[in-house]
Write a protein that binds this DNA or RNA. Structure first.
Ligand SMILES: [Mn+2]
Ligand SMILES: [Mn+2]
Ligand SMILES: [Mn+2]
Ligand SMILES: [Mn+2]
Lengths: 216, 216
DNA sequence: TAATAAATTTAGACCTGTCTAAATTTATTG
DNA sequence: CAATAAATTTAGACAGGTCTAAATTTATTA
């Protein structure tokens, strides 16, 4: 149906669209690790196929069709990640690269059966929502830990940064999905925070707090 | 490491090598559904990479390295087929196309864990042996049903034809892997056979008998 | 608002993998 | 063994996706 490159562009446009109505060529180039000129070439192809709305120099947005395809790829990505962690015992920092390949396996029948096999999980190992077979999913209303005050807290439900380094760090600190945390102290000087969990006290930098998402 | 096209060529050369020391350009073109000239181009690339032994006009064979890669792809193909049938409840005639895509997922760690998850199966849904993580596997010594005589028989352990049509036909006749069959009668005229299984009597054509493999 | 900077697109090239048509080599056969 | 047929390779082209360098458009700022 669509090529691997096309699918990756659609997915990237989708992800960048979350915080904006329109996505720029340079944003895409950065995310896709390619050059702006390559992006322009591809945008023309996707516009030709009516998967994106593209006006030269004005950025792009997905059409309804393009968005459907993007969400389907994200569904596949997250279901495979869930499979790798829950069934094959991978750690949450190990699965992204594999899912980047697996998300392009074309069969929808396969992914629907995988979904059933795992009993329709709602969130992937990083706390991101898994779209159902109709592309529907709930958007959790999460806040970064950095945005809450002393004695406030909640349950860790997601991360903003998906890098290996960040995920490994959180794992080592036992700051994983589902953990309950409360802010015990905020250091004025550098905005680092001291968190209280059930079993220990952990100091995290502002950067870490900014990328850690909780539900109140 | 290697491209999708390269992997498919190596796999095809491997499969065609089973019945010959050398594989011809046209054989490959037929199996890969491409043109002889395209095959020649690719053979040059694979020879350059020292994955095949290639002398113009004289056909090709795999080098040790090339064979290792080919066996690894076959391992992946068959393990994924096993997964699709045993865990996701697909029928044996539905899994080949999906496995054609899945076999190119690069991670060996993934496939080794999948292997473990399924408790190291030795044969895929079509009775073909699954190489272990070192590329080792036993070659079953199977015979086509067409080659045995009256009152002889054995257990169905494989098929020569992997086409949907053939697999679906066998399924409908309950002639599936593991079934015990005995030759009750051979029709002189067209060499069709009447088989006796535990629960019924089935007449099959010579063509069907030729592609059905049993262990004595 | 004119000059400069930043973002984006165009021009032209390259690589992979494929194709058709033509040339070449090997096999077959009268 | 020469003529013909079959198999294979070469020549030249093309599509997809990428790149660098140059041109163009839009944004910023003095
Ligand atoms: Mn991921
Ligand atoms: Mn994820
Ligand atoms: Mn198969
Ligand atoms: Mn098989």
């Amino acid at each position: 149906m669509n090529t691997l490159a096309e699918e990756n562009y659609l997915k990237s446009i989708y992800h960048l669209s979350v915080n904006a109505t329109s996505v720029s060529t340079n944003q895409l180039a950065a995310l896709l690790n390619t050059k702006a000129s390559s992006v322009t070439d591809m945008l023309k192809k996707l516009a030709e196929k009516e998967l994106i709305n593209y006006t030269p120099y004005q950025g792009v947005s997905l059409t309804a069709t393009g968005e459907k395809i993007a969400v389907n790829i994200i569904r596949k990505h997250r279901l495979w990640e869930y499979f790798l962690v829950e069934k094959l015992d991978f750690k949450w920092d190990q699965v992204h690269e594999m899912a980047e390949e697996l998300e392009h396996i074309s069969s929808n029948e396969l992914i629907d059966r995988l979904d059933k096999f795992m009993e329709y999980p709602k969130f992937d190992p990083h706390g991101d929502p898994i779209p159902d077979c109709n592309g529907l999913f709930k958007i959790h209303n999460l806040k970064p830990v950095s945005s809450i005050g002393i004695n406030e807290g909640g349950v860790i439900c997601g991360v903003r940064d998906h890098s290996k380094a960040y995920l490994q760090y959180l794992e080592k600190q036992s700051l994983t999905i589902g953990k309950k945390v409360t802010v015990a102290e905020i250091i004025e000087f550098d905005h680092s925070m001291i968190l209280q969990t059930e079993d220990k006290t952990i100091q995290i930098s502002r950067d870490v707090a900014n990328n850690l998402l909780i539900a109140l």
